[in-house]
Design a protein around this nucleic acid. Sequence first.
DNA 1: CACGAACCGGAGCCCCTCTCCGCACCTTAT
DNA 2: ATAAGGTGCGGAGAGGGGCTCCGGTTCGTG
Lengths: 188, 188
Amino acid sequence: MAQVRPMRADARRNYERLLKVAAEAFAEHGEGASLDDIAKRAGVGSGTLYRHFPTRHALLEAAYLDRIEAIAARADELAAELPPGEALGEWLYELGAGMVRMRGLRALLGPAVTQTGSTVATACGDSVKSAAGRLVRAAQEEGTLRRDVEPVDVLRLAHGVSTAAELADGEGEHIRRYLTLLTEGLRP
Amino acid sequence: MAQVRPMRADARRNYERLLKVAAEAFAEHGEGASLDDIAKRAGVGSGTLYRHFPTRHALLEAAYLDRIEAIAARADELAAELPPGEALGEWLYELGAGMVRMRGLRALLGPAVTQTGSTVATACGDSVKSAAGRLVRAAQEEGTLRRDVEPVDVLRLAHGVSTAAELADGEGEHIRRYLTLLTEGLRP
DNA sequence: CACGAACCGGAGCCCCTCTCCGCACCTTAT
DNA sequence: ATAAGGTGCGGAGAGGGGCTCCGGTTCGTG
């Protein structure tokens, strides 16, 4: 994976700047942010952008890779601090809030994480999936989560809740509320 | 609202064809379907399309108006046939399945139905909102729905569930399952 | 310092959106 | 039926974004 030969200094510089600018642009304008505009804001030509990142998706993935790994790592932190059920709930909240705050993140994680037989199963999708898997299994052992749900179902529903919360425009408030409704059910 | 003078025959013909073709295109390609392509498939110039429907949103709304009214009417049918709780559940299922089948419908209903202080509160959004309101109130009277949810919350969550189900690519199966999880809650 | 390779960047092509206006067709009155 | 008028048609074209290609520049190395 790592280049056999280290990147040239100017190439590396441009690569880093593109990632930084892209993360901002995708957070602000969502998946559809203008790529030429990202290149311009990073001070490079569009050719440079497309050489480093052949597709829009490649750029999106690279721009959010660190945050996705942080999310996956956060799962283990929470698992160590809280009982399994609460750890899962809190993790889903942080995941959902992140997807509302960084709009491109939801566009990226949606397909990457929730499609089962995906031909383009991305590495970042896998790490989130396995993190979710650990929390889900633990909560099921503990008896605070139904046994008939798979990790992928939980991730899809988190995605849906984050979509619902964004419709309400609200920041964290609605996410928390809708996650509670999902957890407890709509019945009294 | 109705034209004081009836539309010219050719205008009316083009208008109808555009609606028909647009509904197909939006169902297939989602909100972002190519407008020039719709015009071409309807056998008219793009100027004609933009005169009848100044914005993409206007066309989307007009294309699905009849279906939205059918959905609203269906609420009363179900309310007459089933106990309130079941009527709400079945209605949400049909609504969600419709949004998966006709992808443009979700893009239209999302903002129209779920934004509270919307400045562009559309007429079709209102009819769905009031239909949901009747079902929700009835179910709360009956005691099968939490009293701390508003109709708009239920609609947003239905939207989210439909998004979640589409990620699973499945047709009706996943919608039904995820609605059940939402109703009963994730706890055992 | 000089050479070759790696990398840059923007000109250019294609597709989509949306506007504008000369022309064709429909309606209505005679 | 026919002519007058005005309504509606349609496609050319401007504007903008996505993506490619290749001449020129910059970097690393002997």
